[in-house]
Design a protein around this nucleic acid. Structure first.
Length: 269
DNA sequence: ACTTCGACCTGTTGGC
DNA sequence: TGCCAACAGGTCGAAG
């Protein structure tokens, strides 16, 4: 489900409820997510103050004095703020309780909740990640160097978290459309000037989506259950058979790396 | 070193 | 209306 804008929307949503608050209790109903939630997480975290609510790639982490709680929402996860009266539903796997409760809900269990005792960047899942797309170090020159002689498609390339993080299936199609690049084109076969357009398109698309509270296709919601409004502004994703907003050509869909890609054959070369 | 692909799990959708 | 296959926002890790 969530790509970077949806994760950032979730982070911004929970931050005011958790920052500088003491974790009173952690209640785990379902340990079996993508990786098991550590059995001793309550012992490690209860009684500590939340010093920061951060995001790295699609991971949210809560910085405590003795370590970090790392949360990934997987494909279908969401976080919400609840009170003690909020009914617990089927896929509400873990509560992190301060004065209110924060609940991780994750129907498909592709997400995870983990503990990292020291610097978050030492964590196995995080240390090999590429740069943040909205960071200044993510440039066309960087992409150009990384793409040298790469045979994979440009879409697979920008979705590879070792190259750049946070670009998922929706925003990959959107950014490639905005930069006029055919998703099938080989990554190593794109000029620097076109990569300049691509990098700008990735940054712009993600920023616009964050401003809209993310994209709700079927079930993404912010912490209060509200949808994101960027779905209304998608230019190609999910629009196969419809007209291109720029040239009136019909938007096409095809499968790439077992994921749906949407593009305009006229605008993207 | 790079690329592809299966696996994880549940809910929803669309075609017959 | 009902059933069942196909598909869904992620990404690791094995295999080629």
């Amino acid at each position: 489900m969530p790509e970077l804008p949806e994760v950032e929307t979730s982070r911004r949503g929970i931050e005011p409820y958790l920052l500088n608050k003491t974790i009173k209790k952690i209640e785990i109903r379902q340990h079996k997510l993508r990786w098991p939630i550590p059995k001793n997480l309550p012992t490690l975290a209860e009684g500590q103050k939340v010093r920061g609510v951060y995001r790295r790639a699609k991971y949210i982490y809560l910085k405590l004095d003795s370590g970090n709680i790392i949360i990934h929402l997987g494909m279908s996860g969401s976080l919400r703020i609840c009170t003690s009266k909020t009914p617990i539903e089927k896929h509400d796997h873990i509560d992190i309780c301060v004065s209110n409760k924060k609940i991780l809900r994750d129907p498909r269990k592709f997400g995870c909740v983990l503990w990292q005792a020291d610097d978050i960047n030492n964590h196995k899942l995080i240390k090999s990640l590429g740069p943040e797309p909205l960071d200044d170090i993510f440039t066309a020159e960087y992409l150009h160097t990384k793409a040298h002689k790469r045979q994979c498609s440009i879409k697979a390339f920008i979705m590879n978290s070792h190259i750049v993080v946070g670009v998922g299936n929706i925003y990959a199609s959107e950014a490639l459309f905005r930069s006029g690049i055919n998703p099938k084109r080989k990554a190593g076969n794109i000029s620097l000037s076109r990569l300049v357009k691509l990098v700008n398109a990735i940054k712009l698309t993600l920023k616009l989506a964050i401003n809209e509270g993310g994209t709700t296709l079927r079930d993404f919601t912010g912490i209060s259950g509200q949808p994101g409004y960027f779905a209304q502004k998608l230019l190609v994703y999910g629009r196969n058979g419809e007209k291109c907003t720029q040239c009136n050509e019909t938007i096409k869909q095809f499968t790439q790396q077992a994921r749906s890609t949407y593009y305009c054959t006229q605008c993207q070369k």
